[in-house]
Computed example of a mutant assay.
Amino acid sequence: MTTEDRTRSAAAQTRPRPARRLLDLFVGGAGLLLAGVPLLVLMLAVRLDSRGPALFRQIRLGERGRPFVLYKLRSMRTGASGSDLTTAGDPRITRLGGFLRRTSLDELPQLWHVVRGQMTLVGPRPETPALARRYPPECRWVLEHRPGLTGPAQVRLRDADVLGVAEEGTTEGYLTRIVPARTAIEAAFLADPTLDATLRVLADTVRHLLGRPVPER
């Protein structure tokens, strides 16, 4: 049985195990307490940098495909239309938004989703319904799992790095190249998402944010 087959057969175990859930509550709660004041400062900075709300809201799919409203610090201009995907040099991104995305500070509000149990610290990308409907059939199993604030694929495969500048066919490229590649990376973790494996991914995330090489797993 391949890793992907084992992961599909474990679809009923999409909820994090008790040890991982305790880690979610501890890290998520501590993170919210520590980031409270900095988050308020960043929200004010977003409001001053460009017109619009400080928080960006979007429907994403959670565990077993259940939708929830995801919150992030707004990094794009209000009212700017375009793809659900963000590419290199995306003109919709504000001046401050570029910094927030590079440092992943725009994702700080998602600690709230981790505490609530809508997300977990380590898991697959929380996908939009529109893109999820177009996933290749062999990749749709990953949508059953609780999405993560970070994950092995999110650390190693960023959309903007692979897709480059926005052009015709960007969405098709994401669905045919990035989604299968992400799913293959996630499969190894989701086949046996132990506490040790979770901590290793968190350590890789810290290395990535510090600009250090992420070791192959």
Score class of each variant (00 low, 15 high):
8 R>I: 15
56 F>I: 00
192 D>T: 10
132 A>D: 09
23 L>Y: 02
201 V>L: 02
135 Y>R: 04
175 L>W: 07
76 M>I: 14
74 R>A: 00
18 P>R: 12
40 L>E: 04
49 D>Q: 07
40 L>C: 11
114 V>G: 10
216 E>I: 04
7 T>D: 06
44 L>F: 14
206 V>E: 06
42 L>N: 04
176 T>K: 10
9 S>T: 10
24 D>I: 14
162 V>K: 05
159 D>K: 11
78 T>E: 14
107 E>H: 09
197 A>S: 09
109 P>C: 12
134 R>D: 08
94 T>K: 00
25 L>Y: 07
132 A>G: 07
161 D>Y: 10
175 L>G: 05
21 R>N: 03
6 R>M: 11
134 R>V: 02
59 I>W: 03
32 L>I: 11
26 F>W: 15
111 L>R: 07
28 G>L: 13
94 T>L: 03
148 G>N: 10
156 R>W: 02
136 P>W: 08
80 A>F: 09
109 P>S: 13
193 P>V: 04
141 W>E: 00
173 G>R: 15
209 L>C: 02
94 T>N: 03
74 R>W: 01
27 V>K: 04
100 L>D: 02
77 R>H: 13
191 A>P: 00
20 R>E: 07
91 P>D: 06
86 T>H: 07
162 V>N: 01
35 A>Q: 06
127 E>T: 15
75 S>R: 05
162 V>Q: 08
20 R>G: 04
157 L>S: 01
47 R>V: 10
33 L>E: 05
168 E>S: 13
211 G>Y: 12
186 E>H: 06
179 V>Q: 05
94 T>C: 08
3 T>E: 07
193 P>N: 03
78 T>I: 01
182 R>M: 12
1 M>N: 00
25 L>R: 15
89 G>L: 13
43 M>E: 13
114 V>S: 11
109 P>I: 12
97 G>P: 01
142 V>E: 06
213 P>L: 03
124 P>A: 12
215 P>Q: 09
21 R>G: 09
101 R>F: 06
19 A>G: 05
90 D>S: 05
88 A>S: 12
36 G>I: 05
